[in-house]
Structures are given as C-alpha cells and as structure tokens.
Amino acid sequence: MNFLNFDLKKLVLTLALLLLPLISINMQQNPLSTGWYDKPFSMLGSFIQVAFFEFSDGVRGTTSLYLNLIDIKKNNQLLESKNRELQTRLDQMNELQAENDRLRGLMSFQASSRMELIPARVMSKDLLADHNTLQISKGSQHGIKVGQAVIATGGVVGHIFRTENFTSQVLLLTDRYSVVDGIVARSRSRGIVEGRGGSGLSLKYVEKSEDVVAGDIVITSGLDNIFPKGFPVARVKEVENKSYAVSLRVELEPSIDPDKVEEVFVILNANNQDLSPQISMQE
C-alpha cells in the first residue's frame, strides 16, 4: 500500500520531533514567560549555583589570603632593607580608603534614596553568549518579585524576570529581549531603549525632528512602571539622521558596564521618586 516506498513510521516520528519546537515557539507569546514545568529545574539550578557561588567565594578568599601572605613577606623584607614601611602603609590605606568610599557610596545611596531598596550580590551569568542575564543572591524570600527594577549607583542594570527562593535572574539592559522607555534628559525627546546583545544599546522610534546629540544622557521615563523616573540609563554615543529613514538612529553606551557590576540594588518600592532634577544638575 506504501506506493512511494518509504518508512511511514520514521517519517511521522521525524515530523513529530520537528513539530515539537515549532509548536513550542508558536505557543510562547512572551519569550520570558516560564511555565510550571520550568520551576523545579530552575529551583534546583538555583540551589546548585548558590553552592558553586559559595565555593568560588571560598577559593577566591583563600587565593587572595595566600597572595596577601606573599605580599606581607615581601614587604617585610623591603622594610628591613629600605625602610619603606610608611609608603606601604600609605598604599594599604589608600586601598582601604577606595574600598571604604565604594561601600560608603552604596550605603549613602541607599540612605539618601526614598526608594525601598534591597542590596544583592551578582552570582552568575547566562549559559549562552546570546543572552545578557545575571543571577543575584536575593530571591522571593527577600521580597523580590518578577518585574522589579535592578539598579546600581551609576544607573539602570535591568529587571527581574525569574525568581527562586534565594536567588533571582536579572535581564540586563543590554539583552536583546530588554526594552525600557527612555527620555533624553536635555531635550525630553522620547524613545525606547533596546538592548542589542553584547554591550550595545540603541534608542529607537525617536522622531527625526527631535533634538538629540552625542553626549546627551538618556534617563528612565517611569512610564513602564518598572523603573523610577529620571534614573540614568545610558549616554548617547552616536546619532545618525538618514534621509530615507523614518526615525533617528541613536546608538547608546550604558551608564554602567553590566559585565563589571558586582553589587546591585533591587527596587522593592520606588515611592514615586523622581530623580530628573539631580540628572539635570549633573548635566
């Protein structure tokens, strides 16, 4: 009965295996949505990542302790021979001062802000190079929910898109799936800040008549109900006005390098804080 003489069973099986991803893509309206079936695995993954994070912290601590011991030995030899104790102490004090300044900056930012913030440490990054996400050390147990904004003292980092009990995943501003409503602080021109993967950003849908120049600061508009109004997002790197294009092509440089950030704040409640006046004064 099989006129074309092929294995019907194999063909049906192959079609079923090919249809599975296609149906999955078709059914997924929001690429960041997670189903109940993801939960146990993401929870298990989060526990394992916490364990690895603690372990790597320990390894780093031991390594730096060992290196410090070598430094101390070296310094002692130098002190005996060249009397450079004061200089060494001064260097160490400068180092401590820098660390102190950084921590004080974080504390004063939290204290001076009306926003309800929760600090967290960056634990891990996305498995695939095609996505810019981070795992942070605070989760739903600490009051974190999907959709909350994540910031650092210098600017916007991203937003929470997945939470576990003790960890959360942050979609960085630079990820391809990330879009944030933005305003150019100087001219109040509006646009959508879209991630381009890697470390790039672009401001889209800016009308050609708008006044945008390189060096302008782009801030959050607050309209997306995720980020507080007036928080720095990026600086305009390049503006191109092509005659045939319907809008300006605006390239941005993020205010902070998301790859280098170590501590972040999750905004639990923005308390309607508007930071625009501070940005205007800085400009």
Binding site: L17, L18, L20, P21, L22, I23, S24, I25, N26, M27, Q28, P31, L32, T34, Y37, D38, F41, S42, L44, G45, S46, Q49, S124, D126, L127, L128, D130, H131, T133, F161, Q169, L171, D175, Y177
Partner: peptide
C-alpha cells in the same frame, strides 16, 4: 529543556529547533 529552564533566558522552542 533542563538548561534553558535553569540557566538561560532563551526560550526552549528555539533551543529545540537549533538542536534538531
């Protein structure tokens, strides 16, 4: 599925299609 659910923002459909 396990890797996508736990460690990435990439939707599973695309990962499956790439693997296929």
């Amino acid at each position: 599925f396990l890797l996508s659910a736990a460690y990435s923002a990439q939707p599973i459909g695309i990962i499956w299609l790439v693997f296929f």
